[in-house]
Structures are given as structure tokens and as C-alpha cells.
Amino acid sequence: MQLDKVVAQLAHAHKAFGKQKVLEDISIALKKGQIMGLIGPSGSGKTTAIKCWLGMEALDKGEAEIYDQPMPNRKVLSHVGYMGQTLALYENLSAKENLVFFGNLKGLSGQKLNDEIKRYMQLVDLEDKLTQIVHQFSDGMKRRLSLAVTLLGHPDLLILDEPTVGIDPSLRQKIWHELRQLAKQGQTILMTTHVMDEAERCDQVGLLVDGEIFALGSPKDLKQKFNAQSIEEVFLKAEEAKGHEI
């Protein structure tokens, strides 16, 4: 397993909505078996970066590639598991019906599908909710179900936009253990997060401030560079430094 292989990259990406610049010259490379966290304040461009990477939004300038293919590319997307902030669930179906439907789309069926449904519903602590209609779920339960759906079929690349919002700390620990195991098996994970202790768990952290990559590196390297004790302190120092530039 070639863990230094670049599986996805943004190169000199620019994106604006009208006069509002959202991404300015963003370059990020994501390597096989790596967990990368994108952090930054609300409105810093994290979700837009993900959408441009997937081809859901067109870049104004620059390149977005996954597996050496310019995005969007439907064939490439079949190898990507994406969990967005807007959840793609069928509210009038049960949790299991959603899982079966999306599992079938990923080519899963029979015992293999049943085994994965059991595994991931246990992971997100919803194994006793399989027959419940999704519109009866709380927002937090819907996010957990959406994560289970995303993990089905072991996609080579997982792109998760705030996957643990509204999830209690003990369950978050359990999910992180699973993500780390998946990375060890060669799956690649890109996630956005507002939770700074989650950023500490990533192999690489990209800090977006006002649409620019202010810092990119391992948590250890960033803490050393900014003379900080935690990623949260790095974040605060970066915001302060950025404010002095304006």
C-alpha cells in the first residue's frame, strides 16, 4: 500500500460568489491513508472547498482533481463517500430502508450489506432504530444515520463535512477509533470540523482564514511553528495574525 500517493488535490483554487471571494489560491494535496482536517471559523471557505473538490461547485480558476481526474467525474465519485451538512436521507423511509437503498447503489446486497448495516449502525449507536421512520429522528440521529450510510461499501475516499456535530463525546471517541482504523487500512479521509481536539487527531491540518490557507501541516508541526500548546491556540494566533494583516 503506497501511503504517499496523492489521491486528491486542489491546485491554486479560486472561487467567488458575486463580489465575495470565498477561496483565494488554495492548494491542498491529500495522500492515501491520511486523515486531513480542515478547520477555520464559519464562513472561512471549508464547505466551499469541499464542494469545489467534488465538482459540485465550479472553480473560477485553478484545478480540482481526485485520482488524477479533473472533477466533476461521475466514475470517480463512485469511489467517494460524501457526507455533507445537508443530509441526503429519505425522511419517509425507515433507517434500514435508507441503508438498503444507498447500499444497493454502492453495489452491496445480501449478507455483505446486512453485515455492514449492523456494523455501522452499532458504530453510530442506532442499532435499535433500524425500523424507525427517519422523519421521527432528531437532527443528531439523522447525522449519525447519514454517517453510517456514507461508510457503507468502504469508499476509497471519505469526505465528511462536520461529521460529529451534535454527537456526544463518548460516541465521538468511538467514531474516531473507527476512522483511524479505516485510515490504517488505506482509506483516505478529509473532514471539516469546528472541534479543536478533533483537529489534534488528524494527520494533517489545514487552517482556512478568509478563504486562504493560513497554515498547513501536522498538528505537531503547527504547534511548533506557532509556539502553541494546542491546535486551538494555533487557531487563535492565526486569527490574530490575520487580523493584523488587514
Rank of each mutant, 00 (worst) to 15 (best):
E233G: 01
K242N: 07
P155G: 06
L207C: 13
S44C: 03
T164R: 02
I159H: 02
G243I: 02
K32C: 05
L89D: 09
K96R: 15
H14F: 15
E97Y: 06
Q2M: 07
I213L: 14
V165A: 13
L182P: 02
Q181T: 12
G103V: 09
K184D: 13
Q185E: 14
L222C: 14
V165Q: 09
M56F: 15
F101I: 05
M83Q: 13
I189K: 00
S109M: 11
E127D: 15
S146Y: 13
A88I: 07
A11K: 15
G103R: 06
L87A: 07
E245N: 02
A8L: 06
P163E: 03
Q224R: 08
A64W: 06
L126E: 14
V165L: 09
E24P: 00
P72E: 13
C202W: 02
M191Y: 05
T48L: 08
V124H: 09
H14G: 04
Q20S: 06
H135T: 03
T47D: 08
W176K: 11
M56H: 09
L30C: 00
L87H: 07
L160G: 03
I175A: 10
L179W: 05
F214M: 04
G37V: 00
I26N: 00
E162H: 06
V195A: 04
S218L: 03
K129Q: 15
D168L: 10
T86F: 11
K220D: 13
Y82W: 14
K225A: 13
L108F: 11
K106S: 12
E63C: 00
L216A: 01
D115A: 14
A13D: 08
E198V: 01
P163R: 02
L151E: 08
W53N: 09
K223L: 06
L10V: 04
P169R: 12
L54F: 11
L108V: 12
L207E: 08
K118N: 14
L145C: 11
Q34F: 09
Q204R: 11
V76T: 15
E232R: 09
S230L: 07
L236I: 10
G33F: 10
D60G: 02
A238M: 01
G37A: 14
L222P: 14
G211T: 05
I26R: 00
A8W: 03
H177Y: 14
E65L: 13
N114V: 07
M56I: 14
K106N: 11
K32M: 04
D168Q: 12
P219G: 04
V22N: 03
T188R: 01
L113M: 13
E200L: 00
G45Q: 06
L145W: 13
V80K: 10
K106E: 12
D4H: 07
D68W: 12
Q111M: 09
E116Y: 08
M196K: 06
L77S: 05
S218M: 05
T47N: 07
H177Q: 15
L54H: 10
F137Y: 09
H154T: 07
H14R: 11
M1G: 07
C202M: 06
L179G: 02
K31N: 10
L190C: 01
Q204S: 11
G43N: 02
